[in-house]
Amino acid sequence: MPGLSGTRRHRRRDLALAISVLLFAFFLLLGPSVWSRPIRHGLRATALKPFIAMRGWIASRQAEREDLREVRAERDSLAAVATAQAVLAEENARLRGLLALRERVGPRFIATQLLRLGTGAAEGTFLIDAGSDDGVVVGSPVFTVGGLVGVVREVSGQSAQAVDWTHPEFRVSGMTADGQVYGVLEARRGSYREEDLLLMTGAPFHSDVRPGSRIVTSGRGEVFPRGIPIGEVLAIESADTGWRKSYMVRPYVRPESAAQVLVGLRDSGLSDLSTAWETQAPRPAPAADSLIPPVTTGTPPSRSP
């Protein structure tokens, strides 16, 4: 036992070295994220690479075993919606050009697979198998046909890491579907993961948002496109005080249930997806040949392809 049989001086030196290592780790934890990033990327590209690749392989095999037809139909519907929206955006851009307004880049999205790692540090985060080579950037929104899932935080060439709405650092600007009340949504952790909700803060004190009202992204900040469904209001928060109100919101999409997602590419935050989900229009009856099932409680209405 080298550490125990040594002299007192040796033991002190050993302890001092151990404390130095702990302090180094502590400084790294408290320091800016740029200190950690190169080490993290290095480890992911070397020691962890086989395990991440294996996770991707297993996830794709699992996805194939699950209800493939339903998943693909959902993805195709979303791709069709996104494509249709791109056409509308191009038309919009042409009109803006006619009006001598600054031309905006239309919405662009890519369908990709979501990989969830099972370590404690990865809680509230997930990987997607699309990266900067595909046009994914930091801040790209991630969503499914049900609604918002999260936002990209770090990007490498072939993959990206994102946080979902349960992560403590996640924020999104939201509004009621009628555009009357705005607020910022952040995670409100429950005692168990299944109890996690969103809290919409900063709503005006005079606002009266009824339970069941739909909350969508407002497009403020130009990170998330306007009009992506987030969730529905459950109730006013009990701890509400002061001049503003806060509402508890039940998100439409549970992050753990998402497998195939759409990711926004560069400048996708400038677009308006309200029409993609018809968030302000009355809910239409789905066509007989629609790939999207009839809307049930808790799921935002979708546009038929």
Binding site: V21, A25, W35, S36, A121
Partner: peptide
């Protein structure tokens, strides 16, 4: 000895933290 084990803890902690987005450590 303690120094060697904390070095091991440092490396293994980095491996675990590298799979998330929070700072290493």
């Amino acid at each position: 000895p303690a120094a060697r084990v904390t070095l091991l803890a440092l490396f293994l902690g980095f491996l675990d933290d590298a799979l998330g987005v929070r700072n290493l450590g």
